[in-house]
Design a protein around this nucleic acid. Sequence first.
DNA 1: GTGAAAGCGCTAACAG
DNA 2: CTGTTAGCGCTTTCAC
Lengths: 332, 332
Amino acid sequence: MTKKDTITILEIAKMSGVNPSTVSRVINHPEMVNEKTRERVLSFINDYNYRPNPFARGLQTKRSKIVALVVPNFTTLSFANIARGIQERLMQSDYTMVIFSSHEDEELEKKICKKISELHIDGVIFASSMMPNYNELSYGIAKVFIDRDGSRDGIDTFILDLEGAFDKLIKYLVAKGHKNIGFVVGDKESYAGLKKISAFQKAINKYGLIVDEKKIVGALWSSKEGWNATIKLLEGKDLPSVIIAGSDTLGIGVIGAINSKGLLVPGDISVVGFNNEPGSESMNPPLTTMEYDDYGMGKEVAEAIIRRINNPEGISETKTYTMDIIERKTVR
Amino acid sequence: MTKKDTITILEIAKMSGVNPSTVSRVINHPEMVNEKTRERVLSFINDYNYRPNPFARGLQTKRSKIVALVVPNFTTLSFANIARGIQERLMQSDYTMVIFSSHEDEELEKKICKKISELHIDGVIFASSMMPNYNELSYGIAKVFIDRDGSRDGIDTFILDLEGAFDKLIKYLVAKGHKNIGFVVGDKESYAGLKKISAFQKAINKYGLIVDEKKIVGALWSSKEGWNATIKLLEGKDLPSVIIAGSDTLGIGVIGAINSKGLLVPGDISVVGFNNEPGSESMNPPLTTMEYDDYGMGKEVAEAIIRRINNPEGISETKTYTMDIIERKTVR
DNA sequence: GTGAAAGCGCTAACAG
DNA sequence: CTGTTAGCGCTTTCAC
């Protein structure tokens, strides 16, 4: 009720004593308008709080000023932080963000891509999504990938350097004397799981250890699953001296399982998590974990998609984010 | 590239040998069209995968088929689940969801409301948002409230029954012999915090205990804050026999702090969390907590906003969600 | 049951 | 630098 319902460009034009097209120029190409005229028009725009009707504008420009973010789920904290960064940066440039969750379901993702095309969304950010469903998108829509390499297709790419992360981590563990390393991955079939496994193996080899497949156990991404997977890991005689969890949430379960066997962390077995999720600092004992700047990544990703929308032809870039070890109390 | 770029209603009309208005009717009012014609038109629509241009349609109908969800943050898990429910239900009816986070910042929320009006969004779902910034919205936009009572303003309302939850919980604790109950609230200034405090006090009184203000300590919503707040609670001589945490995340810190003092959970002090966040089942020991069906709530909320969009005058409804105790191992 | 025509509000040539 | 004009693609009276 605060605002009069529909003030149009025509009315602003009349009041300012100019043609609608001049008002349009004031908004879209201010430099083309004489300063005096511009100021006058602007004052009416402000007084009446005029905003161009996005439908009419979109019909003409074929731009929606909407960017979509496609994530595999809403609950992974890291995505929430990325989303926050994206949202903030996008708003600055007058874009609106819509989020879609694919639930790691290929069919759903296909539907989402269709929807995105139908809505005439200007750009899409794919965060760790399925394979190339994105060709379901209308041709020419701006794209940015998070955690999936699109550089061959000329798509800007933001990658989390998992290989570097595991390199750092294994090196650190080896330096502490650990040789028998277990890994509770998370969902082995998921993209994130697959990448972690390969990075893990690579680092294990690099530091002269032997990859024991039995020490790599899968679990869906919940603590409970982490617990169960860890129990399996603990069944044999040959106990690992440290267990890496694919996420801190998983780590909760790992520690729980270890304790349930009457073993202590880190006295008997050390534990490392991933992502520095809230709570990990206050666990008992506080969990050593790996982290990166997801919020900052979100900002940069938003920056990239805006750039790409305005310059579809520009050469694509790849940016890598490194992870750092947050040392706390679960590694001995 | 999969799809030809722009197939319009005109082209479909030509191919089907009818007027554009007939195609429009097939889509929007199929019952007005002769069955034969309808089928023929429909077959072309499907073959060419025609979808009405949302700009043109919106310009005409003043509807965007977009619903906004305004949340105080992206990271609270309960919101993520609500969002998932909303998204799923909305997609079924061909609506798109946009999410905005206000960061509990009133200015930002005001800006968001403006933006929502500008975008001609059809409906807004406010999840535990600030005071009545919603009058910043354009008049007549459909509204639904989560966790804030709008019934006096004729707004559909979905409430989490915190009073009922605390009633249940305190009753349960009293039955187990607890008389000295501490409460690590979370942010005392936040809406959620305020409501929890008042529900807590009410229940305490009802069961004949005395409210000791010193036993109600604030904290921002992180585990670390929960830890610090708990340390304060544990400073006096008069230790509580049970501590309620405003969220499971907080609960992690509570348990950590208790342990850090050389005390055991639940041996020395019992702990109860809120929201049954993932991981709480696998904590050590598994955390007793309160839960409700946030995902289901999301679905119903979406249902309500769609109903409201299509029938702005209907009488408003209020639905209350109850919380249940998930008994695990932290209460003795 | 269907067609014709107008117009939603805006932007972008094209003149001047 | 500014006005004129056309038209984006759709829905909706109003006739027939």
